[in-house]
Design a protein around this nucleic acid. Structure first.
Lengths: 331, 331
DNA sequence: TTGTATGCGTTATCAT
DNA sequence: ATGATAACGCATACAA
């Protein structure tokens, strides 16, 4: 790789002249600038990140820690992060915690080795469960940290999340306004706070329209195996006209379940899944779904972090952004 | 962040002594080593990657360029890469080309700024289509490059791919041996070399068992919209007992299609999709599928690269590894 | 307008 | 056994 030194030798000028010329400093003659730039171009010169980083105490690199890359939600968030960082001239160093606190702590340690300017983290399930976030708090300056999706009240920093309650509230409301009478809510994640919030929003909407709870139906299904059996029985017995699924899988399973029913009525049930573009494409007929805008979450998180990193005025107040989901209706 | 300098001051020894002690050099007394290590531990000292990198001309970072993170295949490969790199003490700098040559070239340029020791690349669709790989060839030393999945004959370097023909050959053979008589092959990617290879393998197996081609059925379906219509007609008319799908989507769509059929016979058709664990879980009943072992592809690619980067003897012959797929039968 | 000197954090070589 | 010094590539304060 060519360096400033090399260029300076070939041009017969000093290293600092070359450096200044490339940085378009005002105390360098237009003539030299042109000569320098031309050679740099010809030599395919690329500034060495480590040299610059060492000097500026900035690596122009952002460390990302996600719990699970195989979860398409996080893959999509990562897409948004990479997009925004790339736009702003930052590299993204990606780490995966595999939902384990121990890994998370280890990744933080690694990334802290002077190699990243800031952190974008979605906390591991284990970390949230244990409620122990010391490995984050005691190692990362909150001015250099943005949490997304998996947040913690124990950390005071910028946060980007989704308003789970609002999402299902809005969808339920929309369905009611469209004239659906018996709207069910199915979920295989009742035990997660995520599932609870989504259920809350659903109930809130029903309540607002004075739809009695006894007309609503809920299923708590732990295992995939029992799920389908329950669903089959349930679909047979009840005469629902719409279903909101609280998670990725239950919606799709429910729809597949409907397909195995012979009754026309059953097939006409409005199903709303919780998904994203990729998974939605796999169902037929295309399932209506709530898209969490995962990409936007990533973009927003990256934007907030970079803004703070590059801001002159320190100690801006921390913000807590909620990204709105969108509902995609095919019917 | 604490530095060697800081530690040396606190301990009253020189910077080089601290450095050597931490690197367990043999010319440092055991006593000092202990003192140094203890303080380093207490101060939570982490060596600065950029300092070390500048000095050693090594960043211990690997640049990864994938065409599409939203494709679960690549997400899975990335998982394998991160796993292996992490094991070996390397960070992974992730870039996404979005299937565009221009982006690919730009990412190569960025990563080359002294920040990565080597490259793991899966070529963009556009690059393969155009057949122009100068942005790779003229910028990356093949000793620091491993291509995976999306390969090119024009580049002489380590490669990790899948033997697409072999996969469908083996599966078809297995089905024949299990007694299936009329095995169909459906695909929505006939136009891709990938699709062609998979079809070849299928035909090869039929041929080997002298199963006439006229007994086989093939569908070329371009759009999702027409696909289902064709499939419906086709399933009605033909009495196939097994189907091998050449791609992610067609298998799932086919299975959903079967579910809408009333005939018992139709429902008993053996369907084999081309998928991975994540997507397979979304179908009911669980669909049999060919798993490409994407994670292994990533791990192997990373392993090859790191091996080469750390090898004393340069110019080892390039290898061309094929990762075997596995078939998951639920029925 | 250009050049010199310094330091970022690390390690390796060469004194002491 | 320990320390002083130089160098990696870059940017900048300061000198010329």
């Amino acid at each position: 790789m060519s360096s400033l030194k090399e260029l300076s030798k070939l041009l017969g000028v000093s290293i600092s002249t070359v450096s200044k010329a490339l940085n378009d400093a005002k105390d360098i003659s237009e003539n030299t600038k042109i000569r320098v730039r031309e050679l740099a171009e010809a030599m395919n010169y690329q500034p060495n990140k480590m040299g610059a980083g060492l000097r500026n105490k900035k690596s122009k690199t952002i460390g990302v820690i996600i719990p699970d890359i195989l979860n398409s939600f996080f893959a999509e968030v990562l897409f948004g992060i990479e997009k925004k960082c790339s736009q702003k001239g930052y590299d993204t160093l990606v780490c995966i915690s595999n939902e384990l606190s121990k890994n998370e702590a280890e990744k933080v340690r690694l990334l802290k080795s002077g190699s990243v300017d800031g952190f974008l983290i979605s906390l591991a399930a284990q970390t949230l469960k244990k409620g122990d976030i010391t490995h984050i708090k005691s190692n990362i300056d909150p001015q250099k940290l943005v949490l997304f999706d998996r947040l913690s009240d124990q950390i005071n920093c910028d946060k980007v999340g989704v308003d789970d309650q609002k999402i299902t509230y809005q969808v339920t409301k929309q369905l009611i306004e469209k004239g659906y009478k018996k709207i069910a809510f199915i979920s295989s994640i009742h035990h997660l706070s995520l599932g609870k919030q989504r259920r809350k929003g659903y109930l809130k909407a029903l309540n607002e329209f004075s739809i009695p709870n006894e007309n609503t139906l809920e299923l708590s299904l732990e295992s995939r195996a029992t799920m389908h059996k329950y669903l089959n029985d349930w679909v047979q017995k009840n005469r629902i006209d719409a279903v909101i699924a609280a998670d990725n899988s239950s919606g799709i399973m429910f729809q597949n379940c409907l397909l195995t029913q012979n009754s026309r009525k059953a097939k006409k049930v409005m199903v709303i899944g919780f998904s994203n573009d990729k998974n939605a494409l796999l169902t037929f007929p295309k399932m209506n779904y709530i898209d969490q805008n995962a990409g936007l979450i990533g973009e927003k998180a990256a934007e907030l972090l970079i803004k703070r990193l590059e801001s002159e005025t320190k100690n801006l107040p921390f913000v807590d952004v909620k990204i709105d989901a969108k509902v995609i209706f095919f019917e």
